[in-house]
Nucleic acid binder design. Structure first.
Lengths: 212, 212
DNA sequence: GACGATCCTGACGATTTCGTCAAGTTTTAT
DNA sequence: ATAAAACTTGACGAAATCGTCAGGATCGTC
């Protein structure tokens, strides 16, 4: 796609060209991810989304054909960044450093996008019915690659002899937990609300707890 | 089978005394926990619960005043067993053994009661709004006690110097993950469905991965 | 065998939700 | 200026849901 290069900007005297759609869709999605993550698919109504977006309901339907369309769009968006942090896991890197970067980035991104993270967790908890075959396939491939990197480390004796798949499951579970179940974590840590420093502590503790 | 205890029988020409209520409530709860865990509170309808219970809807309302009442009852039931496995963590035990027992029991119980586990996870994911103050308090106390045991081990140099609270969060997160996000785990392990042996492997790998 | 308690049930009403529509307004391009 | 495209909106219809109710069926006990 990316043909028709050269001048992307047209006239654009003000700065509105197709902007209205972009702005309104963004607003709807932003509100939706929060509501879906807090109340689930069925618990969220379009009227509510409309209200919190500052748009009349019929206008929401102008931008999205159905409630499911909004949900699917969100899945796709969240999924786009799913494996971002995993890119740190590469065979040529130092295992310790790579892992530290990975854990820190995963924690930080789930902290920053807590609503997205919870939204996605909720979807997976229900079995991930909205995930397309293509998306599942992608998850699988990325995981395989990361496992290969770990196996490479193990073969060189730079990493403990663990099943990399279980190892990654452990890391995912833990890093997700802090953002997704924040109230439980906060209660456990006996703080009113999780702050960045709690996430930093988490990263340190996780890395320290794992045999490396 | 083969029950028909020693002195259990009352008069009970048949064996119905208050049994009908017990049986029907149990059936309703059993169906509900499955449906709630699969579709959430709002996504589950009373008609559906009725249908799958083999009862007419009005009859469900005879046993439970509202949908919320069913949900709250389930929370209470699931919560009753929440800390069962934690009882293995006691200061006088050997840390390694205690932890092994704990991890194994937690994994096994979430495997055996997957629907309950997912149901509870869903509730916590949404912020645990249905948990009573008393229940939260109980969680906190039990956690504190377990942390004290770990601190005791640390003070004797029998355990790595970790923050026990983060440590337990890590264990909870990981053990829950296998049952709650079973489809993701199965995909990662590249098996069609998780079996008991996968959970056993998980326990071994978790215990092996943690620095002890 | 009768009588009170427990259990069962079809039909119903009030409300809410999704999604549509047709008619308006604003923006953009020529 | 003008016409097409993009956007906005109040009102509406069909369907689903929660929870109720009044009366009938069964059960347990004397």
């Amino acid at each position: 796609m990316a043909r028709q290069s050269g001048g992307e900007r047209k006239k654009a005297d003000g700065d509105n060209e197709g902007r209205i759609r972009a702005r309104n869709e963004a607003k709807i999605l932003e509100v939706s991810v929060r509501l879906f993550s807090a109340k689930g698919f069925d618990g969220t109504t379009i009227s509510e989304i409309a209200e919190e977006s500052g748009l009349p309901k019929a206008n929401v339907y102008y931008y999205f054909k159905t409630k499911t369309a909004i949900y699917e769009r969100l899945i796709a968006e969240v999924f786009r960044d799913w494996d971002a942090a995993l890119r740190h896991i590469r065979p040529e890197r130092d295992p310790r450093e790579a892992l530290a970067d990975y854990v820190r980035e995963k924690l930080e991104s789930s902290r920053r996008n807590a609503a997205q993270s919870r939204f996605f967790a909720g979807e997976l908890l229900r079995g991930g019915k909205f995930l397309s075959r293509r998306q599942r396939q992608h998850m699988l491939e990325v995981t395989r690659e990361a496992c290969e990197a770990v196996e490479h480390w193990i073969s060189e004796g730079r990493f403990p002899e663990l099943d990399p798949r279980h190892f990654f499951i452990m890391i995912w579970a833990t890093t997700q937990f802090y953002a997704d179940f924040a109230p439980v974590v906060a209660a456990t840590l006996e703080v009113p609300r999780l702050r960045k420093s709690d996430f930093d502590d988490a990263a340190d503790q996780i890395l320290k707890a794992i045999r490396l």
